[in-house]
Design a protein around this nucleic acid. Structure first.
Lengths: 116, 116
DNA sequence: TCAACATTTAGCTAATTGGTTAAATGTCTT
DNA sequence: AAGACATTTAACCAATTAGCTAAATGTTGA
């Protein structure tokens, strides 16, 4: 998909937003860790059985992870297989974190007016 | 402070929880980025002036960042200087993220049938 | 086609969060 | 001591979130 620099910037901001919101809840972080430990692929049922909350609640957590791009879904018959997208997780969080490694010239952000 | 292994584990979980909750809001991530760009030290006023929301709102965001250990406070006269703790940020988020780099022994369980 | 299965979606409520304005706390200057 | 200054805390309200139960969707197999 072609897009302008500013659209790309907005999309990146949106991605960061979705990812950090998804990571804000302990259950969702836990789901990612469990999926990772089990090789990155699990059915919804296998995930839901590991948690004490109801299936619909886990289902919604999974949807939020999917919206953030941290998992993808592959329907296989009547099972839905969730696939951990650890590359996306690494990229989005890692790149954000990297801002705090680099020396940034003051002039970069100094002129930006916050408007939120 | 001395503590048992399990207490240490609980404290680490608590730290992760606080940090990811703090990072869940765009304004708080923004505050960290601005502080970093300005060298890691800013007064509450200098921070608050950059945002369009009211001072008490920014003040609360700062308190949440402080509770997570991502900033510390140094009172200097009538000014409160906030200090970015980028080491803590790097350590907590980086170590969590690192789980998704490593091959975990549990992934051997992948071949074991889950449902029973 | 019917029933059992795997899972999500709908609809509701309780708890949490983020925003506001007004009052309070503590410091500096004269 | 008085008043300006820097900032937080208190109290309140609106929006969002996370949990639940019940109903719906789509799949498999007799």
């Amino acid at each position: 998909m072609l897009m302008s620099d500013s659209s790309k910037g907005l999309n990146e901001l949106h991605e960061i937003e979705q990812v950090f919101k998804a990571l804000a809840h302990a259950s969702r972080r836990h789901i990612l860790i469990v999926m990772n430990a089990r090789g990155g692929n699990m059915t919804a049922g296998a995930i839901a059985r590991r948690f004490s909350c109801s299936w619909p609640t886990t289902s919604r957590h999974l949807r939020m992870l999917a919206n953030a791009g941290l998992v993808t879904i592959q329907k296989q018959g009547r099972e839905w297989v969730y696939v951990l997208e650890s590359k996306t997780l690494q990229r989005v969080v890692g790149e954000w974190l990297n801002w705090f490694n680099v020396e940034h010239p003051l002039s970069d952000l100094d002129s930006i007016k916050e408007t939120e």
